[in-house]
């Protein structure tokens, strides 16, 4: 009886793994990996909804209860949000990193991964990056310039303005979590990344961390000698390191494409003939 139940569970598990696999690594009629459209749209909808709701909250409560740091409403609507999101983001980062690290497959199994499976995973990585590109725009354009616009219609009395809470203490740390989890995942699951470290991916992972010293300088400077909020002021220049760090994604894509090139080389008779032609 117990065996039957176990078999059923294992069958269901296999079925759900099969569904997940077909969502993340779909294949075309010819058996080649194809663009995981459903998974990409799902990521865009979930991520878009999260940022959309956050943005709605910002729009609704910034000017009604976010103008005066010393009002009790500010504490209720903004400081509580700040504390909650900092705890959640720290937990996601630390627990997620531990989970991704300790659930890593055996290095030997990774090294002997089937070429088609490896190609499918690269396909998924690129799809994930394509979806992430929209969130990069949301963080680096919408959330950053919300801060620029906010400063021009308010008088600032705190480091924790509603737009700073959304930008420096939510969007950027969340992006940092995502990049660090991705860094660990890639280095423990992809054969080409095992036992060595991708320098460009390190650069990308470091990008949000590189702005931390300037964040300190900026907040200190605004309390001390620079009351204005000219967005291109020298006190803000140090933030560019985040943008420059993200240029490292080019090197990471090159590393992936170098491996994809091997995984898609033509070795048969047809390939040799075509290559010669």
């Amino acid at each position: 009886m117990a065996t039957v139940v176990q078999n059923d569970k294992s069958g269901m598990q296999q079925e759900s793994e099969g569904i997940l696999s077909s969502l993340l690594y779909p294949k075309s009629g010819s058996g080649m990996p194809k663009f995981p459209a459903v998974a990409t749209i799902a990521i865009l909808v979930i991520g878009g909804s999260f940022f959309g709701v956050y943005r709605w909250y910002q729009q609704t409560y910034s000017f009604s209860v976010g103008m005066d740091y010393f009002e009790p409403e500010f504490d209720t609507y903004w400081m509580n949000l700040l504390y909650a999101q900092l705890v959640i983001i720290a937990l996601v980062g630390s627990v997620g990193s531990a989970l991704v690290w300790f659930s890593r497959p055996d290095a030997n199994d990774v090294a002997h991964m089937e070429p088609l499976q490896e190609l499918s995973i690269y396909n998924f990585i690129f799809a994930l990056m394509a979806a992430a590109s929209f969130f990069i725009v949301v963080i680096l354009a919408v959330f950053v310039e919300a801060d620029a616009a906010w400063h021009q219609v308010t008088i600032r009395d705190t480091d924790f303005t509603p737009t700073h809470i959304g930008l420096f203490y939510m969007a950027i740390p969340l992006g940092m979590d995502a990049i660090i989890l991705g860094w660990i995942w890639v280095h423990t699951r992809m054969p080409d990344f095992q036992n060595r470290v991708s320098i460009p991916l390190c650069l990308v992972a470091m990008a949000p961390i590189l702005i931390m010293p300037n964040l300190g300088l900026n907040e200190w400077g605004h309390t001390f000698f620079y009351a204005e909020e000219l967005f291109a002021a020298p006190i803000h220049w140090g933030f560019v390191t985040m943008g420059w760090g993200l240029f490292g994604m080019a090197g990471f894509i090159l590393q992936c494409l170098a491996r994809v090139r091997i995984l898609t080389s033509l070795v048969g008779e047809e390939g040799s003939e075509k290559a010669a032609a």
Partner: peptide, 14 residues
């Protein structure tokens, strides 16, 4: 899109 987003950020700051 990524490079566009990064450029919006860099243009904002400089």
């Amino acid at each position: 899109i990524i490079l566009g987003g990064v450029t919006v950020f860099l243009v904002s700051l400089t």
